[in-house]
Design a protein around this nucleic acid. Sequence first.
DNA 1: CATGAATGAGGGTTCATTCAT
DNA 2: CATGAATGAACCCTCATTCAT
Lengths: 196, 196, 196, 196
Amino acid sequence: MMKNNKQEIIVDAALEVFRDKGYANTRMADIARRAGVSYGLVYHYFASKEVLFDVIVEGWWGRLYQMLKDEKVSDTGCREKLEHIIRFFLDMYAEKPNLVSIFITEVSRSSVYHTAKGLAKFRSFFSLTEEIMVEGQKKGFLRSDIGPHYLTYIFLGAIEAFISVMVLGKEEVTRERRDRTINGVTEVFLSGAMAE
Amino acid sequence: MMKNNKQEIIVDAALEVFRDKGYANTRMADIARRAGVSYGLVYHYFASKEVLFDVIVEGWWGRLYQMLKDEKVSDTGCREKLEHIIRFFLDMYAEKPNLVSIFITEVSRSSVYHTAKGLAKFRSFFSLTEEIMVEGQKKGFLRSDIGPHYLTYIFLGAIEAFISVMVLGKEEVTRERRDRTINGVTEVFLSGAMAE
Amino acid sequence: MMKNNKQEIIVDAALEVFRDKGYANTRMADIARRAGVSYGLVYHYFASKEVLFDVIVEGWWGRLYQMLKDEKVSDTGCREKLEHIIRFFLDMYAEKPNLVSIFITEVSRSSVYHTAKGLAKFRSFFSLTEEIMVEGQKKGFLRSDIGPHYLTYIFLGAIEAFISVMVLGKEEVTRERRDRTINGVTEVFLSGAMAE
Amino acid sequence: MMKNNKQEIIVDAALEVFRDKGYANTRMADIARRAGVSYGLVYHYFASKEVLFDVIVEGWWGRLYQMLKDEKVSDTGCREKLEHIIRFFLDMYAEKPNLVSIFITEVSRSSVYHTAKGLAKFRSFFSLTEEIMVEGQKKGFLRSDIGPHYLTYIFLGAIEAFISVMVLGKEEVTRERRDRTINGVTEVFLSGAMAE
DNA sequence: CATGAATGAGGGTTCATTCAT
DNA sequence: CATGAATGAACCCTCATTCAT
């Protein structure tokens, strides 16, 4: 993917610093220092702080879309698809916590400021998820008296809440916790929180 | 609450600018200009940009806690309490969209970086909500095979997703839409998304 | 003209530094230091290095145009008008050597400065002078077998050469030298360099 | 002259870029790109940006001096010598417009370049021309009531004005235009602008 | 010869904050 | 109370130059 070794090192360093300090408080010098390269080299590979950030964010969106598209065309049941989506976020968090943190704190919340560009990404994300919900309704698995928009928002909101809590608390996810979370979210989302 | 007229004007201006540009991209000069005052005056009332931001954020937390405490001691049923919480966010958004925007886009984020201070606020918010969930479980209204943490995250995540979508899209909430949303979220949260 | 005292001080300092080092090698810090003000104050009054430079250059063009317009409508003879033009440059050099230096070294050539904006200024300068030449031809004072363009270029070129030599050599102009120069240039331009 | 092919290519590229952007705004990378070579190679042949520029400028001065020396020793009349000087500039502009442009915009002014080194070059240029004027005076061809300095400045100033106008307007010189210019300048310089 | 990755000092600009009036 | 002039530390980015391959 990355042709160059140093590029990767810089991106990884950026991932850490952006996560620790947030985009606005990240200094290019910090990234260079953390990457163990000279100041100028960061600019040799990335035209600006914004470009470097965008490279990271694009990487995220790319993985997310890929997963959603895979789920859409997969012939598994609706419940499994929803479980896979939750699993994606949790596995991603386990594998690349910095990337997920940045998504939560810098992208999903502040996409207001990255007008147009970022907002469009978000709409795609929601649309792809909504298509899965619509399919679930058509198949009679999901209730149809509630608009698919609602189902989408509630489902994704629930995931984001879990991820956010982990991000804010800088928590770790064990495999066990992951499975419990997948189960809990799916269960409540599908069967409801009410007793009986 | 505010003793002084100019203070209020400045806070309102700050609310607008923070919402439009985000904390990091807000200039004290922007706030002064939008308030129509000199920028020495902003400093006359507020010691720093951070203090001004905190005043706004404190106002938000105050209202939120008050509402949650009121709900906790109220003797209405669990379903009503949950509905009230959703309504609070939607009404708040209708009344002070900038305040809610800032909460969504800036507060949760700053919690990550300004640890301690902001994180504690967040935990209180979750705790208060969780207490309502625990009460619902004790009363046998909510299922007990799922930890109250889970119920809380899912419920609040769903609300946040709705609010976020409105914030990001700068949408308006009509009374009708509000009621539909309250109903939709409550219904799915309590009864689940599955058909039948 | 300048409402503000500090502004003037900064412009004067800029005049000196631009003259000494040229636009490209001038540091905003140098200007601030030479003006005896803080770094930020320069930016308080002038949005950028370029703006500060333009303010200076505009001042020059303004004076130059004014003089040329005055000469055009004056009812003195052609010889006197030409003498006045030469005198303007020499007096200006005596009064504001830095301004004239900057004009010669940074404005009058500088392929950089000449992008539309500056080029138009130059054309006006030449046009106004040419009108005086045309008038001289009409009145039968100047020969008409040579196009007014040629007369203009030769006349202005001669002046510029004198000024340039003074600028490059950082020479001073005494009143006597000024008068000798006015006379020499006028004499050669009008009567020619040939003996008899 | 140039031993190496690549060297020439680089110099030609530099000529173009220096002309287009001016010395200060020229990047070594621009030159390398325009030459179609890597930018390590530029340093392989030329120790620094300044050296590369000097090579170009030296080439100019060399040709100019050679021409002036040739004229000095030639046994043609003064009028012919002056015509040859004008022709040199115009032919040079036709043949190597970039070189002449650079001379006009970057060398002949530029307080920066003129630190001793450049100033001396200039004085030589003026001296050589002045010698021709002195000779013309001695022979009784040129008037002697005007100092040779004056004649030199006026003559060279006139040429420079013509060249400058072409450079700034990026105009072309046809053979016809060249001859008209030579004639016009010589005529006015020698016989004066006055009618009769 | 030739390449381009790597370096790092330096410059323009921003902006929160202070303070004299 | 109110103003806005004044300060200067900090930061992003540029680019001439070096050097390993």
